[in-house]
């Protein structure tokens, strides 16, 4: 039950994009059409779901003082995390290219972008700061990936529609996307009333 709570909390209440502004760059850059937004969202769920447990294993068994090496190596955290993320993205890219060329063709350009998606590194850092256990980190990874997916698909759908509206010239495009994201953020904020602990009871 605790795992479901973490998933819901990460996806809705503490949404990576709308509550913490993480992953904003690719969120704004790739949300012009619904199809690409959908593909990027799926890729982010996948990468977050994989890197989070791997980074958990690294922090627990390699970097902490009670780990295998017996030395406190937490200062190496950033470098190792980002190396894991970059290599995972590279791996995912190669696997998708080999087994699903269709998906690769539609995602192609956006896959490398995930490396510098702050939501991925941010997720790992939050996981360390909140001291999750291994199953919790899997659930948190999938939950925050799903939250990113929801947010990017929603904004892409709105942006496709708003193209036909009469927005003032200087506000068109990027400016409107910011204000829409703010409104969506306020919408998601109303979910903060949910007490994730109460769902289990």
């Amino acid at each position: 039950m605790e795992l479901i709570n973490i998933f819901i909390k990460a996806a809705f209440i503490e949404n990576m994009v709308l509550a913490y502004f993480l992953g904003m760059c690719s969120y704004l850059a790739v949300s012009k059409t619904l199809d690409t937004a959908f593909g990027l969202g799926l890729a982010v769920i996948f990468v977050l779901g994989i890197t989070m447990p791997i980074n958990w294993l690294i922090t627990t068994f390699l970097l902490s003082e009670s780990g295998l090496l017996g030395i406190d190596l937490t200062f190496l955290r950033f470098i190792l995390f980002i190396a894991v993320i970059a290599s995972m993205v590279q791996l995912v890219e190669m696997v998708i290219e080999k087994y699903s060329p269709g998906l690769y063709a539609s995602l192609g350009i956006f896959l490398p972008l995930i490396t510098v998606n702050c939501a991925i590194l941010g997720g790992s850092l939050f996981m360390v700061a909140r001291e999750y256990t291994f199953p919790e980190s899997v659930s948190f990874g999938l939950g925050s990936g799903f939250g990113f997916f929801l947010a990017i698909v929603a904004i892409a759908a709105i942006r496709e529609k708003i193209r036909y509206s009469n927005v003032p010239g200087p506000l068109r495009g990027l400016g409107m996307a910011f204000i829409l994201t703010g409104l969506m953020g306020i919408g998601f904020m109303s979910l903060m009333g949910i007490d994730p602990g109460a769902i289990g009871n």
Partner: peptide, 15 residues
């Protein structure tokens, strides 16, 4: 609230 940062930036972009 975090949402206001987006409004402020949106308006900054507008200006």
């Amino acid at each position: 609230l975090s949402a206001s940062a987006l409004f402020v930036i949106g308006i900054l972009i507008w200006i």
